[in-house]
Design a protein around this nucleic acid. Sequence first.
DNA 1: GCTTGCGTTCGAGCGCGCTCGAACTCGTAG
DNA 2: CTACGAGTTCGAGCGCGCTCGAACGCAAGC
Lengths: 166, 166
Amino acid sequence: MATDDLMSRILADLGDFVEVDGTLPVEVIHRLVDSGESGSPMSIAEVAQMLGLSAHTLRYYESQGLVTVGRDSAGHRVYDTAAQRRLVFLTRMRLSGMPMRDLAHYVELVEQGEETVPERLDLLLEHRDTVRRRIRELTLSLAATEYKIATYGGRTGDESPATETP
Amino acid sequence: MATDDLMSRILADLGDFVEVDGTLPVEVIHRLVDSGESGSPMSIAEVAQMLGLSAHTLRYYESQGLVTVGRDSAGHRVYDTAAQRRLVFLTRMRLSGMPMRDLAHYVELVEQGEETVPERLDLLLEHRDTVRRRIRELTLSLAATEYKIATYGGRTGDESPATETP
DNA sequence: GCTTGCGTTCGAGCGCGCTCGAACTCGTAG
DNA sequence: CTACGAGTTCGAGCGCGCTCGAACGCAAGC
């Protein structure tokens, strides 16, 4: 997935500020949420480069209604600041595992205006819980993997449990 | 995915022992690693029930060479303890995101005998790192999501950044 | 004897998120 | 004028991990 690259880059950018399992300084959170770059209109290639995804994918996102993009006189896409910011947001949500269809729904709500704010908040809260759950799952799986590494073996469960007790 | 159910059940089973972000007591790790149940041969329905996946999926795993299963006189699958243990292992690895093709490789190594132990260990170590990375990613995304919830708005980046500073 | 229920094999289909290729159009540089 | 590179649209294809359905088999209970 191209999005893996993005997170790698974000992690690389932010890595210096983030303790391995520590809490996040406010500055880091700002850099996670705010786009950081942007400023002037960009071509599809520039946006692709910035986000670490392919032009193909950007066109796909547009076709799915996730973002609206203008054209210049030659019919080429022009990503203005709003489009850029939205794509940064979308990309981050994708990274944390939010399905495209939920994002499409969210975007739809945004386009419907301010009265959908509560429903949008609900979506975010639900997503937050999903991410938290997933982190818990992975933490448990990690513990199991580390335990298996420690007591090795490499048994898939075929052999006898062997003499363990770490 | 059916595997989501499994983790739900594991979490439900273990939830009482696990602090939300705390460390894991040894007992919990044992329960994560050891199958807990098993004992006597099982039918496909029983195994499916135990693991929280469908009989279809179990047949699929077998067809992919992830596990070897015997038959009774009627041609029905009989999952012995070894098969059960292996499936528990496989299911857990799948849960933490290890691709089937890596598991297939791992299983192949197991079948090749003890001299592949170092390579198996490498696979596990690599997987551990992948899981750790993923947890880091999700933690950052979670922070971003929580920040967005806190400063709400629900902007996708379209509107002006608004007066924030939490 | 026939139905019911759980099992079998095989191959096709699906949902997701891209990914790619073909055929075409611009605008600029040589 | 022509060649090139970056862009366009459209539709097909892919990799993953299932998921489903059709057609069949066997064994127990009424």
